[in-house]
Design a protein around this nucleic acid. Structure first.
Length: 658
DNA sequence: AGCACGCCGACT
DNA sequence: GTCGGCGTGCTC
């Protein structure tokens, strides 16, 4: 395949713009402007200046329209070619956005900075062989010799998936093929970055949202030109372009941060699969707790399944205990206290998970029981130490009210516990231990995560307490105790994936303990120890949990047995939102009887979060056996629905239904 | 998504 | 009599 049409000359350019209008627009190229396909420009679109993506240059001027001039050129060299237009078309068709919106997500938005990026040499890989165990070697060999392009490595935590990824990456790069290595949205990816840098040096680029836009652009260019052959990055790195793609790795493939949460709501895992198929590249997904969908696909042979069932080196699996909390005010059970003391006396460390930030999640009136709600969202506000009341959905904050807005009582109770409160409690419980709290609030400060990694490795922290952030990607050899303060949080969310999410969270956290030479101990505290998941957790039997969950999914007809699309209707007026939702549903049901017999329409109903940021929200859930039919159905239904009083959001394969 | 154009209520 | 509400339509 060649892509040499980038050099066609002409006087007009077809340009995509990041706007919901799904077509390109033609602009005149000013006389002196030397423009090529594959450059970004600034254009005036409907009265405002916007970035445009040039997709073709030609002389066919449309009749009857006065074309506008391109305002200016952003790039002085080509940074993409038609391959990314094709990919954006795929995203646009799959997730029902415009091509321009897809390009807006796929392409970097920075400008070339004055300082030249350092001259990069295409370095040789320094004598880097990764030593693989027999088990790792046999999986590596099977992937390399397999006729299948897509693979899942289902390997327990600490089983050494990374070594297989790295060996495959070295192999690809040595053949002159580029590699994209995806990691979840976490700053903690610095650990894998360091390992990759050791092997690949200047051949490695990073690509994630913590870089400045100009850094992202500079790295994009190096990868596009083949000056760097391996890229490690988050979700959007799945769009990186290169001379010839050889391998895509999706580590922790179950992680929901691979799903984009604004239009187009793509899943990087699906884009990776598509690129693997269409660009003839190998895809390796890896997880200790694969998503139900992926594991199901692997069992059916759509992707090849490889299991790693033993820990790497001397590591042993931790022992897991389920401990009943006497009541919701109990925070640290004697069991957890004992194991923590024992570990720290031994020079080891503990991690505690509480999946709830802030100080107290429930603030309510002691007399009438009225909760303090966010004025813009249909949700209770959380009390944060030093900050007062905070809404976790829109960020609205206020002082703690002096009296109840409903009955005027001055008795305002702060109930429940978040990480800030647990931090206070464990500081009292263990006055001599060094405690570090990691959650969204503490991680906001610039170097928190780097300091944390450093201090953990130097054993300057005894107890690391945090939200689910601490379950991702860490590899701390001193940790022998993992405590889950309250395992019930999130289990009762109105979301068919709630159990799956909590199970993998708890299992991932358990996997943080006992990675060194000493055996790990996990204390899972819960109010409801009868819950089905704890049996499987205790045995660390993900496959058993999977089979059980699969039965339920089949029974209630949810993924992977059906595909889902979710339509959210939102707007400032509750009447027009509920009316529009009703009308859209009627349209859809008619369409089902006329043409789309395979589609099920559920709803409309108020979304579980019925109001966010002042917008009322209703949703309609659609189910279909085949994704193509489902997508076509949504497209037809939405296109013919004309109400402009409300916004409509489309989510194909949603990861949550809130 | 913006933003302009256009036709009906409460103001000086 | 005018200012301005947000319903509909367009964007090279």
């Amino acid at each position: 395949m060649t892509y040499n049409n980038s050099f066609s000359a002409g006087s007009a350019a077809d340009i995509y713009i990041n706007t919901p209008v799904n077509r390109s627009f033609t602009y005149k190229i000013p006389e002196q402007m030397n423009l090529l396909t594959g450059m970004r420009v600034v254009v005036n679109f409907s009265g405002r200046e916007m970035t445009g993506f040039v997709s073709a240059i030609h002389n066919n001027l449309p009749e009857g329209i006065e074309l506008k001039d391109i305002v200016s050129r952003i790039d002085d060299e080509i940074i993409y070619d038609e391959r990314i237009i094709r990919l954006a078309e795929y995203v646009s068709e799959s997730y029902l956005s415009s091509v321009g919106e897809a390009l807006g997500k796929a392409l970097p938005s920075g400008e070339s900075s004055r300082s030249r990026p350092r001259a990069s040499r295409v370095s040789h890989i320094e004598n880097s062989r990764i030593d693989l165990t027999d088990k790792q070697k046999s999986i590596y060999d099977r992937i390399m010799s397999s006729g299948k392009k897509s693979h899942l490595i289902f390997g327990i935590t600490g089983s050494g998936k990374t070594e297989i990824y790295m060996s495959a990456a070295i192999d690809a790069v040595s053949k002159g093929l580029s590699v994209i290595y995806l990691v979840p949205e976490i700053t903690l990816s610095s650990q894998i970055h360091a390992r990759l840098y050791k092997v690949f040096g200047e051949n490695l680029i990073v690509y994630h949202s913590q870089l400045t836009q100009n850094q992202r652009l500079a790295n994009w260019k190096r990868f596009y030109k083949g000056d760097a052959m391996i890229a490690v990055g988050t979700r959007s790195a799945v769009f990186l372009q290169c001379p010839k793609l050889g391998l895509i790795i999706v580590d922790e493939e179950h992680d929901s941060s691979y799903k984009e949460q604004s239009t187009p709501r793509y899943n990087a895992r699906r884009i990776a699969f598509y690129r693997g198929e269409t660009e003839n590249a190998t895809l390796i997904l890896g997880s200790a707790t694969p998503s139900i969908e992926t594991l199901y696909a692997a069992e059916r042979g759509v992707i090849e399944l490889h299991k790693l069932e033993e820990r790497y080196g001397d590591g042993k699996l931790p022992v897991i205990e389920i401990v009943k909390l006497q009541n919701s005010n109990e925070e640290i059970t004697p069991r957890l206290k004992m194991y923590t003391n024992r570990a720290i006396k031994d020079g080891k460390q503990a991690v505690y998970l509480l999946n709830r930030r802030g100080f107290a999640p429930f603030v309510l009136c002691g007399d009438c029981g009225c909760a303090v709600e966010c004025p813009d969202c249909s949700i209770g506000m959380n009390y944060h130490r030093g900050k007062g009341m905070l809404c976790h959905y829109c960020g609205y904050s206020s002082d703690v009210p002096l009296n109840c807005s409903a009955c005027g009582s001055e008795s305002i109770l702060k109930l429940g516990s978040g990480t800030q409160k647990i931090e206070e409690i464990i500081s009292k419980e263990f006055p001599d231990y060094r405690i570090f709290r990691l959650d969204q609030d503490s991680a906001r400060k610039k170097d928190t995560v780097y300091d944390l990694l450093d201090m953990m490795h130097k054993r300057e922290i005894d107890i690391l307490l945090g939200t689910q952030m601490i379950s991702k990607g860490f590899d701390f050899h001193g940790v022998t105790v993992a405590g889950i303060i309250m395992a019930d949080i999130g289990l009762n969310m109105p979301d068919f994936r709630a159990t799956e999410k909590i199970f993998s969270l708890l299992m991932q956290l358990s996997g943080r303990s006992g990675r060194g030479e000493s055996e790990g101990r996990v204390i899972i505290q819960t109010l409801n120890e009868e819950h089905l998941i704890f049996d499987y957790l205790k045995r660390q039997d993900y496959l058993g949990f999977y089979r059980e969950e699969l039965k339920i999914r089949k029974l209630i007809n949810y993924p992977p047995f059906t595909r889902i699309a979710r339509i959210v209707i939102r707007g400032k007026s509750e009447e027009s939102v509920s009316q529009s939702a009703e009308l859209l549903t009627i349209d859809m049901k008619r369409l089902v009887t006329e043409q789309y017999s395979g589609i099920m329409v559920l709803g409309p109903s108020p979304a579980p979060l019925s109001k966010i940021g002042g917008n009322y929200r209703y949703h309609i859930i659609l189910k279909g056996k085949r994704l193509n039919e489902l997508t076509a159905f949504v497209k037809t239904a939405i296109d013919s629905f004309k109400s402009k009083a409300v916004y409509i959001e489309i989510d194909i394969d949603p990861v949550d239904m809130l």
